[in-house]
């Protein structure tokens, strides 16, 4: 009745089974599901679980990547390789209005850039695809407001989350019913912790982008945050130059908004150990959260994952 493994099942195996069950419930219950793919480690686990859930069938829904055009170049290469290797039905969407307006993190700041190129872009893509279920990789341990997110989280026709009107979720019975125009956000790895994700990646040998591993990379340091100079669009402040440092990333996103950390952890075991020893929370490196207090709650209501 719970993920508490019955004799013989490790907790990772139990978590895996629970997630697979959720994936299958989506495939069986919705007309047009889609899986969000952000190329990060959580997405990599999600993709691996989806492949397991439907094997030997292909994943029976498309994989959607919202490309802000400011992702690390390596992420895009990784994404396209995964799509080829796993025969994915990959859909890439960029907000054409934002692109035309030249929205970028340097001129417009993280809040505007994220809203237009990510939140609004996602809404466009979901509307265009008329998806009734969007699968995401959010976890309940990430942030306080996520702690009470449902696994099957109902969204109204405007993709907004109504926290006052959440459906109670008992046992493993998921209410997947929708009215026309409404949709569901589904989080198969809700009950995983960050450590679970890393140990699972290690145990299963799941491929993740090399950006997670410490390498010498060109960076500039701004108010204590290490920003990687990933391409020639980078705006240097007067007197600023890139210098090589041994860094890695704990979360991946738009490169000008992703803070790296100094690290020597060049392989998975070292990362896991370093992470275990570290005493700062995961989202600290994510610049979008620090823009305003309670931002995650607000972003979620607006439709951000």
């Amino acid at each position: 009745m719970t993920v508490n493994g019955p004799r013989g099942l490790s907790h990772l195996k139990s978590l895996e089974s629970e997630s697979i069950e959720i994936f299958r419930e989506v495939a069986a219950s919705f007309e047009r599901p889609v899986m969000m793919y952000s190329i990060g480690k959580d997405s990599s686990v999600l993709l691996h679980l989806a492949r397991k859930a439907f094997f030997p069938s292909r994943i029976p829904f498309p994989i959607l990547h919202i490309d802000t055009k400011w992702k690390f170049r390596e992420m895009i290469e990784f994404r396209d390789r995964m799509a080829r290797e796993h025969d994915l039905d990959l859909i890439v969407h960029t907000n054409p209005d934002g692109l035309a307006a030249g929205i970028n993190p340097f001129d417009h700041g993280s809040a505007v850039h994220t809203d237009i190129m990510k939140t609004q872009a996602l809404r466009q893509a979901l509307n265009a695809g008329q998806y009734d279920a969007a699968i995401g990789g959010a976890r309940r341990d990430e942030e306080k407001s996520r702690a009470k997110e449902r696994i099957f989280s109902h969204r109204n026709a405007q993709h907004a989350w109504d926290p006052k009107n959440q459906r109670p979720e008992l046992w493993r019975i998921f209410n997947t019913r929708l009215a026309p125009g409404e949709s569901m956000r589904v989080f198969p790895i809700s009950n995983w912790t960050e450590l679970d994700v890393w140990t699972y990646i290690y145990a299963e040998g799941i491929e993740i982008p090399d950006l997670y591993f410490a390498r010498r990379r060109p960076v500039v340091e701004r108010s204590g945050t290490l920003i990687m100079v990933d391409d020639d669009r980078f705006r240097f402040n007067p007197g600023e130059t890139a210098r090589e440092e041994m860094i890695r990333f704990r979360t991946l996103g738009c490169y000008p908004l992703s803070g790296g950390i100094r690290s020597d952890a060049a392989d998975l075991p070292s990362i896991i150990m370093e992470m275990q020893a570290s005493r700062t929370s995961e989202r600290e490196g994510r610049l979008i959260d620090s823009d305003s207090v309670g931002s995650m709650e607000r972003k979620k209501q607006e439709g951000y994952f």
Partner: peptide, 20 residues
């Protein structure tokens, strides 16, 4: 070595039960 230590530790993690 990191790898050996991790293996030991991972084995420990796997044996861990989960209580809800």
């Amino acid at each position: 070595s990191a790898e050996t230590a991790l293996d030991l530790w991972l084995a420990e993690q796997t044996d861990k039960g989960l209580l809800r």
